[in-house]
């Protein structure tokens, strides 16, 4: 969409007029990191919607599950082996990697079960999809409260990812850089997967016309399950990264991020991965700039952007309007 880039650039540069450059840089890094974390959640949501026309309200609960599974892995390995407190970069990275792997695997499994048992019988019925995935959200969130307890808990952060680098007097937090790199990698990964693999080809075809894909001999439900599992894993990745970023886990964290993801997906256009990157960056950056300039207005800024975009383009920046 032609207006997307100029709007993003304007949004990126305009705050520079009010904020001192060094602070601006710090805020920008934080904003990009936040944007990328939200993108991880939104990307799965938008992929699932694009292919199966399902708005998955359980996506937020998968986010929380990812966070809690990863948290348990970090906690266990740290208590037994001290991997988080170890000064070794290798052990720290391995710890994070294992946590990510566990979170994504569990969420992918949960996603598969959800798709098979709960979503599949209601394909094509929007209202029942919303209601049933909402019910699943309640159950999954309550299970978290039963297994891990209802209160907030502190996530131990591997030493390597704590603190900040001081580059030419600009303070750059370490973990946000990790988050940005990861976000970019996931985005490029999704694009390449869709563009270059046969599965990606069939998924893209299915997004356009699922019926035709079927009469060409492809079992589209297998692709539905796969994409649902992949989207769930992405939500879990987002949840875990957010848990490390904010150094805490809460049972309700998924619900709040689901709303962020909704806003992002509406801004970007339902079904578009690139749209959700741009939307997520807009939301992340705007939140950080506004929180610095006018702290009270920060919570409203996402809604304001969403309303503005809907005014300009009712289907979102990259929406097909189907």
């Amino acid at each position: 969409m032609k207006i997307a880039l100029p709007t993003l650039l304007l949004g990126l540069l305009l705050p520079l007029a009010f904020i001192e450059p060094r602070v601006y840089l710090t805020l920008t890094v934080a904003g990009l990191a936040m944007g990328m974390l939200i993108f991880l959640v939104a990307s799965g949501l938008t992929l699932i919607f694009g292919l199966m026309d399902v708005l998955n309200f359980a996506h937020g609960a998968l986010f929380s599950w990812g966070a809690y599974i990863g948290f348990s892995v970090v906690l266990a390995l740290n208590q037994r082996l001290g991997w988080a407190e170890s000064p070794s970069v290798g052990l720290n990275a391995l710890l994070l990697l294992l946590a990510i792997l566990a979170a994504m695997l569990v969420a992918a499994g949960l996603g598969m079960v959800l798709e098979r048992v709960i979503v599949r019988p209601v394909y094509g019925k929007h209202m029942f999809q919303i209601l049933i995935t909402l019910g699943a959200t309640i159950v999954m969130e309550e299970l978290i409260r039963i297994v891990w307890g209802p209160n907030d808990q502190v996530v131990p952060i591997p030493l390597t990812f704590q603190g900040s680098w001081d580059i030419a007097d600009v303070i750059v937090l370490r973990f946000p850089i990790v988050a940005i790199v990861l976000g970019v990698a996931v985005y490029l990964g999704i694009l390449l997967l869709l563009k270059l693999t046969r599965v990606g080809l069939i998924v893209r075809a299915g997004v356009e016309n699922g019926e035709m894909v079927q009469v060409m001999g492809h079992n589209i439900y297998r692709y539905f399950t796969a994409v649902f599992a992949a989207g769930s894993a992405l939500a879990a990745l987002g949840g875990l990264m957010w848990a490390v970023f904010s150094q805490s886990v809460r049972p309700a964290m998924g619900g709040e991020h689901l709303i962020f993801a909704f806003i992002v997906v509406i801004i970007g256009g339902l079904g578009s991965v690139t749209g959700s990157v741009i939307g997520a960056l807009m939301v992340g950056l705007a939140y950080n700039y506004v929180a610095f300039l006018v702290p009270k207005a920060a919570i409203g800024v996402n809604m304001a952007i969403m309303v503005l975009i809907l005014l300009l383009r009712p289907t979102g920046l990259f929406g097909a309007g189907k």
Binding site: L201, R204, E208, N209, M212, Q214, V215, M216, I220
Partner: peptide
């Protein structure tokens, strides 16, 4: 199901073509 019928050797050209517009000819 349709995908199994298709694999038995039945090709379908629907009314209105049903092509994938955002894919290239080759990808189609």
């Amino acid at each position: 199901p349709p995908y199994e019928i298709a694999r038995l050797g039945i090709g379908y050209v629907p009314e209105g073509q049903g092509i994938f517009a955002t894919l290239t000819v080759d990808e189609n």
